[in-house]
Amino acid sequence: MKTKRTLVILAVTALVAALLMLWLRAYYVFLATVVGLLLLGHREVWSLIRYRRLPVMDERVRGNHVKAVRNAGVFFVIAAVLLMLVLSGDLLRNVLAARIVALLFLSVGAAYLFSYLYYDAAEPNLGQKALRCLKVFMITAGIAVAVFIASSILQNAIGGVLGIERRVFLFFAMVICPATVAVGLLGSVVVLCKGLIGNLRNKDEESEANENES
């Protein structure tokens, strides 16, 4: 956010939207709006509280924002198309299965957003080993999502074309893949949090050193 005016306009709009959701008794949407806005504006709010000024919007941050918006758009379009494809088949007639798939997509979306928001702050504090771990966890989650999609399509295709049920694909899509995604996402988030904690410590140490110098 470039100026205080932009921040104020966004905050007021968000407040109005949140109050509207409360009035409509859409409590989950209200909660999601508040949490989402706090996540997106946490740097600005923190900087205003601590330093009484907004953080600088430099060329790297601006570039990252552009990439994040573009990639998030692409991700949600692909996710929506695939979800609709899967929902149209026989696989998700079971309510529990639909919940697992919804949770899977929501988790991937949330982790994606989280990594974009915090990767820059966490990365400088992570060693080579931690970065390798993060890469492995993310690749694991990505492969599991790909296998899930392939299994869902194969399950529907084989069922539709040959008229026979292949439980192995169902097992992969409903048990193995969600479990693997959960492990991958959890691992990624833990490594990122480790980097963020390191970042906070470094900032404190540096501000102490600066105070000592002055």
Partner: peptide, 14 residues
């Protein structure tokens, strides 16, 4: 340095 050139500290680290 970040303050002088008008960027965030993270940018200097990178």
């Amino acid at each position: 340095l970040a303050e002088t050139v008008g960027v965030r500290r993270e940018t200097i680290i990178f």
